Structure formats: structure tokens, C-alpha cells
Simulated scan of single mutants.
Amino acid sequence: MGILSRSSVNRQSNETMRLLITTFAGIVFGFLIGLSFPTLSLTKLNLPSSLLSPVDLSNIKEQKPSPPITQTSSSSNQSLNLNDTTKIWVPSNPRGAERLAPGIVAAKSDFYLRRLWGNPSEDLTSKPKYLVTFTVGYDQRQNIDASVKKFSENFTILLFHYDGRTTEWDEFEWSKRAIHVSVRKQTKWWYAKRFLHPDIVAPYDYIFIWDEDLGVEHFNAEEYIKLVRKYDLEISQPGLEPNRGLTWQMTKRRGDRDVHKQTEEKPGWCKDPHLPPCAGFVEIMAPVFSREAWRCVWYMIQNDLVHGWGLDFALRKCVEPAHEKIGVVDSQWIIHQSVPSLGNQGETQNGKAPWHGVRDRCRKEWTIFQSRLTMAENEYFKSMEVGLSNLTAH
């Protein structure tokens, strides 16, 4: 029995020694193998969730961040970096807002005035449906006062001040509720491009962009809106008193109807009766745009061309069919008083009065705008031809 006992003890000692040696060798071998291969990230493995769930991944870091996730298929979701599951990337959001949850994105704004106190939801007792803007100088305040009174509380009043004088307008009660923007020696199209972005004026069904020298004795804004809706006009203007000043035949008031959309000009002036100046045409002194039409027109206004000359002939590009969607409202008409107030904001050059330089700039802008528009359209159609030829070649 004693010999068997010693034999058993020796065997156990030998087996223990072999196990220790084998274990040590395995550890060394594994260490060497680990040095020979790059780091393996568990987050890249498509392991069953039952294996991953007990693993603490909070200390596992990627060498490079994963790109924004744009795929939505189940197979793509399986390979998502687990660290990116709390990040937001929404390609359908407005540009620059992709990292925001859609519910917090405020893509549009308005001119509604807000209080400095109370609950935001209780700020507005009403929301005007229309916007009217005037580009004004203080010398024309009586005329603007008469004009503003023709617009009901359904209209937001916005004044663009080219002479820098704003506080003086508080002599009129309505001025305290109006919005005033002041930049010296600028035109209404300069203002419109910078302050009437389509996403700013989106709450308004119609946008009036008017001059300051308009007589409105025979005009009522609410009645005008009714006629615009009735005749489905996207771009319009009130008729002009035919016996006051120079104007196109298209924009002269007709006393026998509510609205007209076409006219006859001098022989040879209209190669196509559906094109300007015989149709699809209003002038730029008192235009009225639907929300949808203004979105297009705003993009067509050039940053450096501030007088708007030539724009009236191109408005038809923004509605279809233009000869039906553009018209003149005859029964709500105005008088163009032709006050050269903005012209006097220019500078005297070569001994000439300021308005001479302003008028020269207007004519130059007309030529530049027409050239740009023609060139842009020619380049587009040329690219379309090249694209079609490539398609047919393949």
C-alpha cells in the first residue's frame, strides 16, 4: 500500500507540472500571436446578441469615426457602429440641419411680432394672411399713410426706409405695429432679395411689393384679393390710370371689366400675342405675387442688379401658362404719381443731376439682366442636347 501511495503522488505531481508548463506556453504563444495581428474590434463582428450582451463595450474605441448612416435596410443596420446609434443624421432635413432631429427643425419664419413676456402660444391673437411692403422716404409719409389705410388687419405692413428716417413715422398709429427696415440709398429689389426670402414670407398667401408714389383712392386691398383668387392670378397688379404718365398698354386700366390678361400693343411689338408686352406681363412698380410665384421670382432676382429693370419681361418664366396666370385687375386701380424721390438719392456726376446717373444705371441693368437670362437658358438647352446625344449613343 505504501508503494502505491507514493506512485500515485508522483503521477499527480508530474501531471500538475505538465499542466502548468502547458498553460504558461499557451499564454506566451497567445501573447506572441496578439502582437503579430492588428487590433480586432468586437464592434465589427456580426456576433449574436446573446454573446455581445454581457460584454462591456463602453471602453472599446474606434480608430476612425463611422460615416453618417444613410442606408435603412436591415442588413445595413446590423453592421452599424454601436457608438453611432445615438447620433442623428437626416438627409431630408434642410442643408446644414442634417444633425438635428426633424421635430426641432424650424425651416421657415415669419414677420409676426412677439411679446417679451407671457406664454409664446398666446402671443398672437391673429395671423395676417398677406404682406404688403413699401420702399419709402419720409417725404412721402402722407402718401404712404393713405396707402396703408387701404390694407386691412389681414396684412402685415413692412416699410423699407431708403433715407434712414424711421422713428419719425411713429406719428402714425399704424406705424407702431409695422415692421421697419432701414438701409440708406437702396431700392426695393435690393431689400426684397435680402429680407423677403421665400422661407421668411411663407405664411403669406400674397405678397405686395409696391413703390411709394401710388395713388390709391380707387383701390381696396380685400376686394383686390377676391378678384385675384377668382381669376386665378399668380402674378398681378392693379390697373393704372390711362391718362396719367407713360405706361404699357397692358397695364392701363379698362373700365368695362374686372380683369384683363391680354392686350394689343403697337404694330410689331408683339411677335406672339401670348408673350410680353401683350400678355404674361405686369410692371414692377406695384406687382402682387402668390406665395408660389414669389418663390420662383426671388431666385431670379440678381444680387447686384438693384433696380429690377427687365425683370417684368421675365416674370412669365415663373408661372405656367403665363398668359392665363398673369393679369391686371381693372376694377381696383391706382394712379402712378411718378415722384422721382429715389432718383434724387444718387450722386451728381460730371455736372449732371443725381437722377441722370440712376437712370443710366437702370438701363445698364436691363441689358445685363437680359444678357444673363439668355446666356443661362442657352447653356441649359445646350447641356440638355449633349445629355440626350450621350444617351442615344449608348
Rank of each mutant, 00 (worst) to 15 (best):
G2D: 13
L4G: 05
V9M: 06
Q12H: 04
E15H: 12
I21P: 01
F24E: 09
F24Y: 09
A25T: 13
I27V: 13
F31C: 10
I33D: 02
G34I: 06
L35V: 04
N46Q: 09
P48C: 03
L52H: 06
P54G: 03
P54I: 07
V55K: 06
S58H: 09
I69L: 11
S73F: 04
S75E: 15
S76M: 05
N77K: 15
Q78D: 11
L80R: 15
L82H: 12
D84I: 08
K87F: 13
W89L: 06
V90Y: 06
V90L: 03
N93L: 01
R95A: 13
R99K: 11
L100C: 05
R114A: 13
G118N: 14
D123M: 02
S126K: 01
P128Y: 12
T133K: 02
Q142A: 10
A146D: 12
A146F: 01
S147E: 07
S152D: 10
E153K: 15
I157K: 15
I157M: 11
F160I: 02
R165S: 08
T166K: 07
E168C: 03
W169E: 01
E171I: 14
E173W: 01
W174A: 05
K176F: 05
R184T: 12
R194F: 04
F195N: 07
L196C: 01
A202N: 12
Y204N: 04
I207M: 06
W210K: 00
W210Y: 14
D213T: 05
E217F: 10
A221N: 03
E222L: 02
E223R: 14
I225M: 13
R229D: 14
Y231H: 15
D232F: 00
D232P: 01
I235L: 12
I235M: 11
P238T: 11
L240V: 09
P242W: 00
G245T: 08
G245Y: 05
G245S: 05
G245N: 08
L246S: 12
T247V: 00
W248S: 12
Q249E: 14
M250K: 05
T251E: 12
T251Q: 12
G255E: 11
R257W: 07
D258P: 01
V259W: 06
H260F: 11
T263Q: 07
E264N: 10
E265R: 07
E265M: 10
G268K: 11
P276I: 04
P277E: 10
C278V: 01
C278A: 10
F281E: 03
A286D: 09
V288T: 14
V288Y: 00
R291E: 09
R295K: 14
V297C: 03
Q302E: 11
D304I: 02
L311H: 02
L315G: 02
V319H: 01
E320P: 00
E320D: 13
A322I: 09
E324M: 12
V329K: 13
I335N: 03
L342P: 04
G343A: 05
N344W: 07
Q345W: 03
Q345L: 06
A353N: 00
P354A: 06
W355N: 09
R359V: 07
C362P: 00
C362L: 09
T367P: 01
I368W: 01
I368T: 11
F369G: 03
Q370F: 11
R372P: 04
A376M: 11
E377L: 15
S383H: 15
V386L: 14
G387H: 08
T392V: 14
